[in-house]
């Protein structure tokens, strides 16, 4: 597995992408994304498809992107894209599994903290086949409820107010943040009822977006 180090454009973020050799010429993929916070650690996202429901083992699968909309008490949506079809057999063998995205802090190649941030029941499979590339897209939904807490966030890179609904995009995700939490960012304090994630590995780097909104 080729390890590719890239420098993020952001002032505090470095990324480390691992790309399967088979598809390295086609698309970058992520099996871990390290967002280096100089003062603390890198941030890593990992995808796991569970196998217990199919009497098999869990498997970590490299992904090229994921996006999610996480809600409190309402269905959370998760979509992950797997480059290539190398894992088709493993996915078929876990057709009743759960899609998990973990977020972890990693430093000196060691996980300081790892926590599941999004979970969804494996519901649909989409197979895309082009002339030179193939992808498998898995999606799922799951409704969870979270205990309300407060969180102070920083690093807002974008703020909007639409019809009184505040949104912030931040560059430093918080591993403990859940929908429904009361967050304080800058001068804003509001209930983060929807947390959206969008991460995509590209040849030129990493597009990432984490948005916290009131609704």
């Amino acid at each position: 597995m080729l390890i590719l180090f890239t420098k993020n454009k952001g002032p505090f973020v470095n990324t480390i992408l691992s790309i399967p050799e088979a598809v390295v010429s086609i698309v970058a993929s992520i099996d871990s994304v390290f967002i280096t916070i100089p003062e603390i650690a890198d941030i890593v996202y990992l995808f796991t498809l569970t196998g217990a429901s199919d009497s098999t083992t869990d498997i970590e699968i490299p992904i090229s992107s994921f996006q999610a909309r996480k809600r409190n008490g309402e269905p959370t949506y998760l979509q992950i894209t797997i480059p290539g079809v190398d894992y088709a057999e493993q996915i078929s063998a876990r057709s009743n599994g759960t899609l998990n995205i973990d977020m972890a802090y990693k430093q000196n190649n060691k996980f300081l903290q790892r926590k599941n941030i999004i979970q969804a029941d494996f519901e649909t499979i989409r197979i895309d086949e082009g002339l030179s590339s193939q992808t498998i897209t898995l999606t799922g939904y799951k409704t969870e409820s979270f205990s309300k807490k407060t969180a102070a966030l920083s690093g807002s890179i974008y703020r909007s107010v639409t019809n009184g609904i505040i949104r912030h995009r931040i560059a430093k995700p918080n591993i403990d943040l859940n929908p429904g939490d009361t967050v304080t960012i800058g001068n804003d304090t509001f209930d983060a009822n929807v947390i959206s994630y969008f991460f995509k590995a590209t040849k030129s780097g990493l597009n990432q977006n984490m948005e916290i909104a009131e609704a």
Partner: peptide, 20 residues
């Protein structure tokens, strides 16, 4: 093998749709 795996996955995809 790889083609069979892909067909299998496609069948799983339809089976999931059928369940839904």
């Amino acid at each position: 093998q790889k083609a069979r795996a892909l067909i299998d996955l496609e069948i799983v995809s339809y089976q999931k749709r059928l369940s839904a």
